[in-house]
Design a protein around this nucleic acid. Sequence first.
DNA 1: ACGATACATGCAGAAACGTGCAACAACAGG
DNA 2: CCTGTTGTTGCACGTTTCTGCATGTATCGT
Lengths: 262, 262
Amino acid sequence: MLAAERRDHLLDLLAREGKIVAKDVAAGLRISEDTVRRDLRDLANEGLCQRVYGGALPVSPAVVDYGARQTVAPDGKRKVASVAAGLVRPGGVVILDGGTTALAVAHALPRDLACTVITHSPPVAVALLDHPQAEVLVLGGRLFKHSAVTCGAAAAEAARNVSADLFLLGVTGVHPEAGLTTGDAEDAAMKRALAARAADTYVLASSEKIGTASRYRVLPWEEISGLVTDEPAHNPVIEQLTAAGVDVLPAGAPSPSSEVSA
Amino acid sequence: MLAAERRDHLLDLLAREGKIVAKDVAAGLRISEDTVRRDLRDLANEGLCQRVYGGALPVSPAVVDYGARQTVAPDGKRKVASVAAGLVRPGGVVILDGGTTALAVAHALPRDLACTVITHSPPVAVALLDHPQAEVLVLGGRLFKHSAVTCGAAAAEAARNVSADLFLLGVTGVHPEAGLTTGDAEDAAMKRALAARAADTYVLASSEKIGTASRYRVLPWEEISGLVTDEPAHNPVIEQLTAAGVDVLPAGAPSPSSEVSA
DNA sequence: ACGATACATGCAGAAACGTGCAACAACAGG
DNA sequence: CCTGTTGTTGCACGTTTCTGCATGTATCGT
């Protein structure tokens, strides 16, 4: 592995996970901790990370005007996005919805993951520009500015010509009775069209969405494979969904790792 | 093996694997590491790769990144973009190319201008999100990451279904004999397809493009209506173009443009 | 306060680097 | 056909850079 490549890897790790533990990286890459420490020291000198005891952290968001918006993403969305990104298999084909949560998923994808991403969201496409191994297909159409996605007849038509293993669906409301909802009729139709083209559909549901409903129904529960949320499993709504047979993937607690340090 | 062939091989390797290890390439091609190093040094001088200890990496994403480049858009591009934005009539339909200069045009468009913008560039689409009066049509297709535009058969197909008053074309080279050129064959084809759908085609040519040529021809002079540049009119290349009947719109000096129409 | 862990520094071997040089091929001109 | 020129390639040499280990110091958690 080239030294510069290692450096990129560290920055990538920092962006995706929000921290670096020198020991873990050294073990992961089979190199000495000294080398990792030296790299981190250099990166810190260039202002690309903040050195702390045991590893490094991102520089304060105010300084990173460049990637500011992605770091501003609320913690809940970051966690959901991280778990959802893990659903994308190397070599797999995923349809990525629009919206801020889906955008966070794009940012959370490992930079060197070889996969195909289909999206009707220009911001998602832009976010994937620096993922050299990701094949990106953009679905064209009329730009719906509120959600920053393409929609309309042309977009629906384009959607009919693709298929995928997985659809990561963003919605504005997740409600036991109302199902999955969003605020625009055309947007809802587009999401349905996309869901129809994927073998599995997983919903990205950060906690503020749980229990709320918007005007337009996207899909009923039966047509989705699962849901990723940072809401605790004991939330009544979540329990209800679990009982209804929805595969709920928790994104909240990094739970069982406590015994590792012990 | 020819030297040029070797050079292509290196670039290809860089594109496919994201890195080059000098030692491995030398062993693979049965040539000395010195030769590989020399090649890499040359490629780096041409800005086609980034030299690092042990090999080379693609040009640093930070340098290529559009988000970064748009904020540091050179003065020349800003001037060109400003003049080009003036070519868009209220209620008109314009096709906006990809690339940093076209992106600068998107930013230069008055925020309340009511017009229709057709683009195959996700960054341009994103830039127009806060233009409430602008109707934006995105042409879908496979994302070509280097230029951040969609291309390929799907994009060309989508292009066939639109027409416009004006096409604002970005290129990498503007040369009296070579014509308008760019660095990628598919990208060139897409630009041709777009030019065919517009009544008028104007070239965005900030001064650093003037007099240079890239590998792939986009269009001959006869097929464009004009050219916007911040290069002074007395530049030999510009004079040659003017003599050839190209409508040159100056973006450098705020001076009267009387002689342009003459 | 103590042990454990992380750290900075110096050092040495290894690897990569740049440069100069010579051998060689391609080419132009006589 | 010969010859001088130019450009490329591989080798040799000395230099720089990188990396892991050892040492002693600083910091953390208990």
